[in-house]
Design a protein around this nucleic acid. Structure first.
Lengths: 352, 352
DNA sequence: CTGAAAGCGCTTACAG
DNA sequence: CTGAAAGCGCTTACAG
């Protein structure tokens, strides 16, 4: 079946193709009667503008690309473990795209391979996306960020971990989420709560630390200096910090590690010390990483609202709200809502 | 950054754009020296052909589209249950696409809504995909099939259930898989094995039935006529059939239901009769549906190898092996390998 | 083996 | 408010 083009519609409606173009793009300066005539003709002929032609002629490609790590996806899939990035991104981004006449290419990227630069570079050249949604670890990949900037493509970085510049950085409200998790531990009955901070270079670390301290203070609880431990977001640093905390004379009844990897380190340290989680000690993490769902016990944590974030990212991109040289954190009121996920690693404190 | 075009490469190499085009598309009739010169220029400039331009000028769009059900995806995601279609399709189809310079649009389709026809139709008009991969329930949706045929788009139907015509139909080897599951039950020690057949209109039903009978015969086992029950692939029909089987004087020790829904019906009937699965009775299904993974007990079943099927589908499509008017079952040697997934619902028969 | 011309189906920039 | 011309970056069909 020969496809119907803008010329067919123009003929059918008795106008020029430019007028058809105006109507299809909802541009101003068309008389209502003309507009309706054209719309009717398009409807009757079943006309939809060819994406390639629009893309080639115009300044927009009507294409968004999301970068997702190939290895991570493969791992998620083959281990048959719950939630995965791909579906969440797709679900979140699809609706805003559809509403704006956009289409989404979800590209699996082989991070940390020699050919990645070449792959990403030709992806951008071939697709010319109007915007790119980066998910971890793309969000923090210097080569990706570099290529994106050079190509002048607007991009949104979801849940970036490192304080690299560039793009619209979108993450949950770390401060508020940490405060809420702290409050949840307090509500369980805990009073002696320790905190393991992350790599201090990252804004997220500071924000989570602040959230913890604020919540404690707000509830009228004191924080012993020895309960504030430094970590660097690694399992090992969580393990070491937990060891120190467990050895304390005035041992805390709960540890809030400011990411899941460190919280998993706490579980290991507790196990080594013969402590039962959660009856002897509660442990909470942050991120809702895959590991948190399959540790023993499973970890109470804070979930990054990836679906909502992908939606907000797509919306910002299709609305042209992200300039090519953007280098800002998303405004606080754009912070998507987070969720506390309380699993097996937290419980009321042991009776004194 | 102004992007580099075919003209830049032509200038750099001192040839015409047509020659550059030949080299980029690996066409014949270019002197090796010229070819190298052009390749070097493209490399040096970081040139990648613009997909829109190729698509608009040429007969191919270099785009494949996969249709996935929106509601199903949403359900999979929000229930936080393992495997999902989306990831499997993406993983399977990505590699063949990449190798052929193709890109994949994964489109979420709202099946069974009034606007579906319009949506799919404009999708095809806008994207002009060179091929479409259909997953259930798109594989059996008459409107989708109709639109695809009218548009002249080659398509592959993954795991189609109904005997509607059209496309390249790709499914696992039902006969072989049923035989293998039967063999697995026999290997567990079962001799009295019942079978619940599906809707006889479907080829798959007949094939599974044959596979069962063949395996029983090959192992020298007899099949009582009362052990062969008719079902129609619904939960209810499985429930009813299982009731009849359980009431038999010579009750079978295992029931092989030829799809998961019917097998789940068997579980319900067994529960009603106070039988313990698997100690009193083994039950096996077919499909590896989501339900099979979360029933109590979890169901032993046959997995549709969706990743491999998506891969084979993408390969056939990008290689142009699927004519627009294709209406055939994939050749038996193209049947992707299946896997038996033995879970909690099967065990050795009770000691007599 | 190589290239000049035409055209894919739109949007842009401009004119009226 | 509407339209005629030019051009986006390629491939096709043809010529040499």
């Amino acid at each position: 079946m020969a496809s119907v083009t803008i010329y067919d519609v123009a003929n059918h409606a008795g106008v020029s193709i430019k007028t058809v173009s105006r109507v299809m793009n909802a541009e101003p300066n068309v008389r209502p009667a003309t507009r309706e005539k054209v719309a009717a003709a398009a409807e009757a002929l079943g006309y939809s503008p060819n994406l390639s032609a629009r893309s080639l002629a115009g300044s927009k490609s009507f294409v968004l690309t999301a970068f997702v790590d190939a290895a991570l996806t493969l791992d998620h899939w083959s281990s048959e473990r719950g939630t995965d990035y791909l579906t969440r991104i797709q679900l979140g981004a699809t609706l805003p795209c559809r509403e704006a006449g956009y289409h989404l290419f979800l590209e699996l990227i082989d991070h940390d391979t020699p050919r990645m630069r070449q792959e990403v570079s030709s992806l951008l050249a071939a697709l010319k996306p109007d915007g790119v949604i980066l998910t971890p670890p793309s969000s923090d990949n210097e080569i990706v960020l570099d290529l994106l900037k050079k190509s002048g493509t607007p991009f949104v970085r979801l849940a970036p971990e490192r304080s690299l510049p560039g793009g619209l950085r979108m993450r949950l409200d770390d401060r508020g989420a940490a405060a809420r998790m702290t409050k949840a531990l307090i509500d369980l009955g805990h009073r002696r709560i320790a905190f393991i901070a992350g790599e201090p270079r990252y804004g997220a670390s500071r924000a989570r630390r602040e959230g913890f301290l604020t919540a404690m203070t707000d509830q009228g609880l004191t924080v012993e200096p020895t309960w504030m431990q430094d970590g660097d977001f690694t399992f090992q640093s969580g393990f070491d910090a937990a060891r120190r905390l467990i050895g304390l004379r005035e041992r805390p009844t709960a540890i809030f590690a400011s990411n899941d990897d460190m919280a998993l380190g706490c579980l290991a340290a507790a196990s080594e010390a013969g402590l039962n989680i959660p009856t002897d000690l509660s442990v909470a993490g942050f991120d809702d990483s895959t590991g948190s769902r399959f540790s023993r016990p499973t970890l109470s944590t804070v979930r990054q609202p990836l679906v909502e974030m992908a939606g907000a990212a797509a919306r910002a991109l299709v609305n042209g709200q992200v300039p090519a040289d953007c280098d800002t954190d998303a405004a606080p009121d754009q912070f998507p809502p987070f969720h506390l996920v309380m699993r097996q690693s937290t419980a009321p404190p042991p009776k004194a």
